[in-house]
Simulated assay, not measured.
Amino acid sequence: MRRSVGILGAAGFVAVVVGTTAGLPSIPPDTPVRAGPIGVSRSVCGDWTAPPPGTQTLQVRNNAAVAMEVEVIDPASGTVFGELDGVGPGTTRSLPVDLGDGGYALRCVPDDGTPFVGATVRVTGGAARPGPAVVPVTDADLLGPLKRYHVYVADGLGTLAGQTAVLDRSVHSGDREAARRDWLTAHLTYERLGAAYDAFGDSDRALNGTTDGRPGGARDPGFTGFHRLENGLWHDESLDRLAEVADRLDADVRDLAAAFADAQIGQNDLGLRAHEIMENTLQFELTGRTDYGSGSALATAGANLTGTRAVLDVLRPLLAPRFPGLPDLDAWIGRTGRDLGAVEGKPLAELTRRQRERVDADVSELTERLAPIAAITEPRRVS
């Protein structure tokens, strides 16, 4: 889910020096604006002259035989002010930017080559740089957060394996109420691991899939895992019949826990999932689409929020110098947590209109406030 074009992120991003490209040739500030598209190629990244200050749209034409990523940067710091992904050969694309006074250059990243920076132009006659902008995050920057998150998920899977074993025993014992309690405990643990679902591969659908796309609905043999067991436990299906479902769930969790040691979480996954976890909460949990009888959608939303916090915690060293909105985001997460906690344990249908509107508004606003995280933490090739 890469952005195709745009001014990066949200207003208020700050520029932090991450390197230098000193010695680049510069064009005099009084050079008139050149009409027509800015050309990029294998050898030239931006045959352009200084544009006027302010909000505007640059036209960028790729004259190379391969696709290019093109960014508008501060050549002294590497800060990115706008970018285009996947500009095809012979294609002209629009690039919106908001330029204040200072030096700018284009950085070209050929699909099959090394990034390089073009000539510097200097914008004058405007105001201080208004942003938004973001200092690039590299693959190397993400190694530490990814390692810490891998540990978090591995620990969570170890806990989950113990919980599904208890759940399996409860189902086999014939104690439906105990099985329901144990189901909820295990399911919420799984829901706290949201940023790793892509790394789980097919296991996620087996463990937490729904009836969507299942011709047989709840009776479809491919419907397995937590929601299959939930459907049976809360719709009075025979526990003898559910024992096989619980056995498979327990076995699948143990297999995943063992296999995850060698699994890799994608470089883009952390930033993307910080937003997508709550987006999915809004789409599925708060609409009741994934409730198969337990009435635990709000508890699941709380678990998703915990999972989002875990992602932000490992990304915080990268976000703190790049995202001035982080304190406000933390405050909104706190508000959302308090409001979810006030109704936790209730089915959606039992909320008052005021409670429902407040929770929906909290999660909707939080989802929007999390959206810039993906742009900030997307790994970029800079050399």
Rank of each mutant, 00 (worst) to 15 (best):
L370H: 02
G54Y: 04
V5S: 13
R369C: 03
Q267M: 11
P32K: 15
R129G: 10
Y190E: 02
D252L: 09
P321G: 07
E378W: 08
E279Y: 14
R289F: 11
F226R: 02
P110M: 07
V33S: 15
D291T: 04
G36Y: 07
A375I: 00
A186G: 09
V72D: 01
G46K: 04
G325S: 07
L229Y: 00
E230M: 02
A196L: 08
W234P: 05
R2K: 10
Q264S: 15
P321E: 07
S77F: 06
R289H: 13
L167T: 07
P324T: 12
R176V: 14
R335K: 15
V363L: 06
R192P: 00
A67G: 12
G90H: 03
A274I: 06
A199F: 05
R273S: 07
R148L: 12
T57S: 09
R176H: 09
D240H: 12
A218H: 05
L340V: 01
F223L: 07
G162Q: 05
R273K: 12
G6V: 05
E237D: 14
N268G: 12
A331T: 15
R289G: 07
G302Y: 00
D236S: 09
D141Y: 01
L282E: 12
G125P: 04
W234R: 08
T114L: 13
P115V: 07
G156Y: 05
D339M: 02
G222N: 11
E378A: 11
T210D: 10
L184F: 11
D313A: 13
G12K: 00
S203V: 07
A199Y: 04
G78A: 02
T57R: 11
D291M: 04
D202I: 14
A361Y: 05
T120A: 10
S77T: 13
F223M: 08
G113M: 11
P52C: 15
R356Y: 03
P324V: 11
H227A: 06
A119I: 15
E357R: 12
D168M: 15
R380P: 00
A320R: 14
D328M: 14
